[in-house]
Nucleic acid binder design. Structure first.
Lengths: 206, 206
DNA sequence: CGTTTAACCGGACCGCGGTCCGTTTATTCC
DNA sequence: GGAATAAACGGACCGCGGTCCGGTTAAACG
């Protein structure tokens, strides 16, 4: 939850909307400092070492400011993931097929899942750290976008039953990979990707 | 994680094994006190109000003792769920069909999912409170049991591709319901149940 | 019984995420 | 430039889950 005005992940396409009153210079500077310091700690010592107190100390920014900016520890991690998420959204919303428009719905769905699993497997550690209390998950903007996109493809593929429910269930399948321990993720990734394709084709075949 | 010797959920059938050295009388008494007090707080004020300090105070048992017994807050909630979990295991492992043995694999799987969704929807609040860090989830005994059972049925149904992966994915689908906000759960339960059946039949039909 | 021993007990203590509110400062308007 | 104002700031503070260790007590044995 970035309260500064650069709302993350929501706009679906293009750069985020400019805030009505532009961000103050010191605020922008501190945001940059925070993200830099966060990435440095993350690279050096991993997510567990990234405590809010340490981040405050090493970034030279007060603790209260961090929470004003990102709302929570989870919000900070989401901001860290924001850049790559936004790029991914662009690819499946307007990039070349089979991920983007132009390919048959089932093919797009297969490609989407494969890409997403691969992405998740790389950033799983950070995603785990970004985890919010389960109840809040549904409200995370990026998840809404993904769910809507899946639902669209499922409908386009002619699924005759409850489309939103299937989309919800397929999301759950794609999310599950992050709960694997770090070393198993790479090992299982090919099998999970094939399993996804098998699942999608079976569920959506006439 | 109950370290007392009454290991939960593992034995699959029948009562848990007796510990080599039986539990001391005071330990047993305190365990009962703790579970009683926990249930009372839970009923009165909900999971958020069940803090370890309050539980220590109201049960008259020291805080250190609570953690010796249950290992963590999540472990306490698992112990609270243990009784009904054990009953559920009995039903699908040796109860009457279609949940228990005797019915075709697909029918058993459909019944299993419906039952599990219904159960989850009732105890979702407690389950959320029992949530462990995602990485640890795979290690929870009850989850292993469920995964093995699903894998068994999937194989018996003649699924020709990667059976463990499909079992993993189906588990994720059944788990997803707990992330719905409390009021939506009851509303969505019928649709999710039908969605489960649809999914299973499509994936496992010849 | 009395002694021994090992398990049990409990509350002081720790580091964490998150909040609060008095202070500082960038920006705007005369 | 100087005054006014709203935003940004930051560190003291809180309650939480979890740990630690010296004191206590139940059980086993002669």
């Amino acid at each position: 939850m970035d309260r500064s005005g650069l709302s993350p992940l929501v706009p679906l396409l293009g750069p985020p909307p400019e805030p009505l009153t532009p961000e103050r210079a010191d605020a922008a500077r501190n945001r940059a400092r925070l993200l830099d310091a966060a990435r440095r700690i993350l690279d050096q010592d991993g997510p567990d070492a990234l405590t809010m107190d340490r981040l405050a100390t090493e970034s030279g920014v007060g603790k209260g400011t961090i929470f004003r900016r990102f709302g929570s520890r989870a919000g900070l991690f989401e901001a860290l993931l924001d850049e790559s998420e936004r790029a991914f959204q662009l690819r499946f919303l307007s990039g070349p097929p089979p991920l983007g428009p132009g390919a048959p719905a089932v093919e797009r769905l297969v490609a989407f899942g494969r890409e997403r699993l691969a992405t998740y497997s790389v950033v799983a550690e950070v995603m785990r750290a970004a985890e919010r209390p389960v109840t809040e998950r549904a409200a995370i903007p990026v998840r809404r976008v993904v769910e809507v996109h899946i639902a669209l493809l499922v409908r386009e593929a002619g699924y005759p039953a409850d489309v939103p429910v299937l989309a919800f269930n397929l999301m759950a399948v794609l999310d599950a990979i992050v709960q694997l321990p770090g070393d198993e993720i790479t090992r299982m990734l090919p099998r999970l990707s094939d399993g996804w394709e098998e699942l999608v084709r079976r569920v959506l075949r006439g």
